[in-house]
């Protein structure tokens, strides 16, 4: 970050190279699996770093800090969407159904696709905890710092998120079996 502040272009390239895929995936899964939205958010985040690098406090772990910024951006987006939803007061009820069904030939692939479709229907905090824990491999303490929540809360939310996801998939499976019978 110091090199970046001093105008080192290589430092910026390295920083982008290190984090662009991880953050893109985070935005992609947090904001409805939309490529364009994820690209916009990724760009906005790095523009923030370019414009105000002093926002980063050197004592903190950079990866934790950058994901906390990303998480706050997602929270603001949820709030904005909520406001818009109230204003428009009409929503396409098939929106999720259209987005969720994704058929693949392989059964395993199909299961994974279903899991991630269900993931999008989870609560925002549960979703972010699952991504930070199982995709980014952050520890519970680090996740607690990123989301600004106590470790105990993270632990219980993680448990319920896994449980909820498992239940949803199990229900889907049983529904499928019923329809076959």
């Amino acid at each position: 970050m110091t090199a970046l502040i001093n105008g080192d272009r290589l430092a910026f390239s390295e920083l982008y190279e290190r984090y662009n895929r991880r953050l893109f995936y985070f935005f992609y899964r947090m904001l409805g699996s939309d490529d364009d939205v994820a690209n916009d958010f990724l760009q906005d985040l790095f523009l923030k770093i370019i414009q105000k690098p002093e926002l980063y406090k050197p004592g903190h772990k950079f990866s934790g800090w950058i994901f906390s910024v990303a998480h706050n951006m997602c929270k603001n987006e949820y709030r904005r969407r909520e406001v818009r939803k109230h204003v428009q007061s009409e929503e396409n009820p098939d929106q999720y159904a259209q987005a969720t069904y994704y058929e693949t030939a392989d059964e395993k692939e199909n299961l994974i696709a279903e899991v991630f479709n269900e993931l999008e229907l989870l609560d925002e905090s549960q979703r972010s905890i699952l991504i930070l824990k199982y995709k980014e491999n952050f520890s519970l303490k680090e996740i607690a710092e990123i989301l600004d929540l106590p470790v105990g809360t993270i632990k219980s939310r993680l448990h319920y998120a896994r449980l909820e996801l498992s239940k949803r998939i199990a229900n889907k499976e049983s529904l499928k079996q019923d329809s076959y019978e």
Binding site: Y16, N39, Q43, L130, Y134
Partner: peptide
């Protein structure tokens, strides 16, 4: 299992190259 699924899911999900150019 979840870790494997996330790793598998992340394959092919990549940002647009134009974002990098704009940021640089």
């Amino acid at each position: 299992e979840l870790k494997r699924m996330f790793t598998h899911d992340a394959r092919g999900i990549e940002p647009n190259a134009a974002v990098r150019e704009r940021l640089e």
